[in-house]
């Protein structure tokens, strides 16, 4: 039944579409940071779109199947191998007992998603199977996978031979435009500060994980102010406020951090903007060194982009 982890890669965890409804008490949504890819992997193998899958960052794991199964790999561009022989991604593949799934060096993107027919059958915690590292809950035993782990799989024969059409497979670039809505605290930036944020490119640093993505390259200038009651002394400090997923904070004005799906729910840094929900997958597939421009859009444009993104998801789910 189970899938055995021979090598875990750098950071492989189990994620579904997330844990909704607890951010107000500090439990973030978690779930796949590239939702489109996780949904695609699931529907390829015949699962519902929200089953738990493997999410591997920067490097694939090496897995062994202990019984015949159907598997699909999506997300980052990476060579896929079954028993050392090249196999396609974005397609569902029949595997036999004893088959070993492994990966080559990623050529684009940061995270691959591996779905197995029947889903990864780990316990549901607060409504989700997603692993949340800081809280040490969900996923497999509340942690990332280690060599020797044996992951239980749900019962489902699966559907080999499906392929997502080429034009529905995102290709990941080392140069991206990320759309943001400015605010709530962009008024804290001077004109030069705002220009440095949106007119100049940033580079993703190596400090990038499911919690946050930290960028470098420019320095933001703030409007002088009198330190408000309850705020820290750094110009980027505010009186504590909630943080939306996707919000951008800039401690000391030097390194913008985009909060992703494992982020804390609040704190004392000014959020100068928020990445629109339609572009959060794109952020999640950025790897260190990715040249990134933050492009401001209106709320209406953000809502329109969200509608188009949801249409793309729906089109994917309706393929089969």
């Amino acid at each position: 039944m189970p899938v055995e982890i021979i090598e875990p890669g750098l950071a492989t965890s189990i994620q579904d579409l997330g844990r909704q409804g607890f951010y107000n008490v500090g439990i973030p949504p978690s779930g796949a940071v590239d939702r489109y890819a996780a949904i695609a992997a699931n529907i390829l193998v015949g699962n519902g779109s929200g089953e738990a899958v493997f999410e591997s960052t920067y490097m694939g794991p090496k897995l062994c199947f202990t019984e015949p199964s159907v598997v699909a790999v999506t997300g980052a561009q990476a060579p896929v191998f079954i028993n050392g022989t090249a196999a396609p991604s974005w397609e569902s593949l029949q595997v036999a007992a004893g088959d070993v799934l492994s990966f080559g060096i990623f050529t684009g993107g940061a995270r691959i998603y591996i779905a197995v027919a029947g889903g990864l059958n780990v316990p549901i915690v607060l409504g989700s199977r997603s692993h949340y590292a800081l809280g040490a809950i969900g996923g497999f035993k509340g942690r990332n996978l280690l060599a020797g782990d044996s992951i239980p799989i749900g019962q489902l024969a699966g559907t080999p031979g499906r392929a997502v059409p080429e034009d529905m497979r995102p290709v990941h670039s080392r140069e991206v435009d990320v759309r943001i809505v400015l605010g709530l605290y962009d008024f804290r930036l001077s004109e030069n500060g705002l220009s440095a944020l949106i007119d100049k490119p940033w580079q993703l640093t190596t400090v990038a994980d499911r919690i946050g993505f930290r960028y470098a390259g420019n320095t933001l200038e703030w409007v002088p102010r009198e330190q408000p009651f309850g705020a820290g002394s750094d110009p980027s400090n505010i009186t504590d406020a909630p943080y939306p997923v996707g919000s951008i904070q800039v401690p000391a004005g030097t390194e913008p951090i985009i909060l992703h799906r494992d982020a804390v729910s609040g704190g004392g840094y000014a959020q100068v903007g928020t990445v629109i929900s339609a572009d959060m997958d794109l952020v999640g597939q950025s790897s260190p060194g990715t040249k990134t421009r933050f492009r401001p859009v209106s709320i209406d444009e953000a809502l329109d982009a969200r509608k188009k993104y949801m249409d793309r998801q729906r089109k994917l789910i309706q393929l089969w």
Binding site: Y58, I105, T107
Partner: peptide, 9 residues
């Protein structure tokens, strides 16, 4: 160079 950011591959 040492301390340079590199990409996969």
């Amino acid at each position: 160079d040492s301390e340079a950011i590199i990409g996969p591959g």
